[in-house]
Design a protein around this nucleic acid. Structure first.
Lengths: 231, 231
DNA sequence: ATTTTGCAAGAGCACCGCTCTCTTTGTTAT
DNA sequence: ATAACAAAGAGAGCGGTGCTCTTGCAAAAT
């Protein structure tokens, strides 16, 4: 212990952390829309106006929670990939996508906050982009690895008509040198995985899918056949 | 004109319609979370408590709007398929999925209400199931038509290991006699299409996809290769 | 030692969903 | 025709929300 008494700045960060922790707990219990500054304050033994020293608005608190959640999910997925780094791309893809799904089912309200309907007026600040991109970058690196070891076999994947579909700089960190087609397929895979998880979590499989576990694995397998080289 | 003065029951239905119309307008402007009974009433020149004669709760009004939206979307998609009924399954699939996407972009707030994060406490009443299923049934009928004219070529599609993944009665209206594998792939296609549209509408393609139009068409094409018989 | 700064409290504003009571008005039964 | 009834709306009110503004106080900086 360096300081018995924390400095002013340290105390502030600590208080911010307490607010976020309390908010996360309440959000996990009742969902993001029901998260109220007043209840957070009440829970902490504070009066509501006190919270405005730390977050100028409810949206600002939500944004902080969003960034944390993206990073938490990103950590999970990156760890899952690293654990299977010695195995082939298909194994890594299964590990990564299962990690996404597990995180989603363990944190349904935070998942809904990230991937559900955005608040109509809300515009996500630019610093949320990088944490949000981490998951896609993991998927991109898996595809890239597969394409580097095995040359592309699908004609469509190198189709020159794909030029201009994506942003120029997209996924460049993870997929430098990989043809446009592979990037398009990666984004397709990305939205397929999250589409399945959202439908499962949001209740759209009720009456259709009996074993969401098995269904999800089949979908990932099919999409792996499509996206990973050397099918 | 049969009646100059509408009967009590007719007037009631008319008033319900006015409420829903006003609500739809306000929801289109500000989104479902911001829809308030008080504002609807104000807009109609009523006092808020008057609305409780017609809807016992805000959730009940939202449910009515949900059902109407599902039916509106269902109408659109069924019409789109019928327009291409003479063409092959791939054409019908493109028509249907484009109709979904067009509807979503024309009614973003209603789309978010149907396919975004559900309200945490909210449990959809059973009578919402049938309107909600209409879109999936259209997709199912397209796949079924393709499989009836061309026998399945993909081994996976008739894999006996798929038994038990889906609910027993699922999609039976549209896909009687079609093997389990085709149904699994249909649901995969279903979640792929909505996954793409949700990502586009909810802003997750910002920085990745430049032409959402072209991207969507590519995705539908790829999924058609996978799901429709005789690839 | 004095000034400055930061945190929390408290009152208050306008809004929300929802309930309850009361009045008016149109329908139905006698 | 009149009496009984039912439905629709008005209005007040309860407890909740996000957010603002002022005030008091204690710690840090000077």
């Amino acid at each position: 212990m360096t300081d018995a008494r924390p400095t002013r700045a340290e105390a502030r960060l600590l208080q911010i952390d307490r607010i976020k922790t309390t908010s996360r707990r309440l959000m996990a219990e009742k969902g993001a829309p029901a998260l109220s500054l007043r209840e957070v304050a009440r829970e902490m033994g504070l009066v509501s106006s006190a919270l405005y020293r730390y977050f100028a608005t409810r949206d600002e608190l939500l944004t902080a929670l969003i960034v944390d959640a993206y990073n938490d999910l990103g950590d999970c997925v990156e760890r899952a990939q690293r654990r299977e780094a010695s195995k082939d791309a298909r194994h890594q893809l299964h590990a990564a996508s299962s990690a996404i799904r597990r995180w989603a089912k363990r944190n349904p309200n935070e998942y809904a906050l990230l991937y559900g309907s955005p608040v109509p007026g809300y515009e996500a600040p630019s610093y949320t982009v990088e944490p949000a991109a981490r998951v896609a970058l993991v998927l991109g690196s898996i595809v890239a690895q597969s394409w580097r070891t095995n040359p592309p076999v699908r004609v469509k994947a190198v189709d020159p008509s794909l030029k201009g579909v994506l942003e120029t700089q997209n996924l460049d960190e993870a997929m430098s040198g990989i043809p446009e087609g592979a990037r398009v397929l990666t984004l397709m895979m990305w939205s397929q995985i999250f589409g399945c998880i959202s439908f499962e979590l949001f209740g759209h499989y009720k009456g259709s899918v009996r074993s969401a576990n098995r269904f999800f694995n089949i979908v990932v397998d099919e999409v792996a056949n499509l996206v990973l080289a050397r099918e």
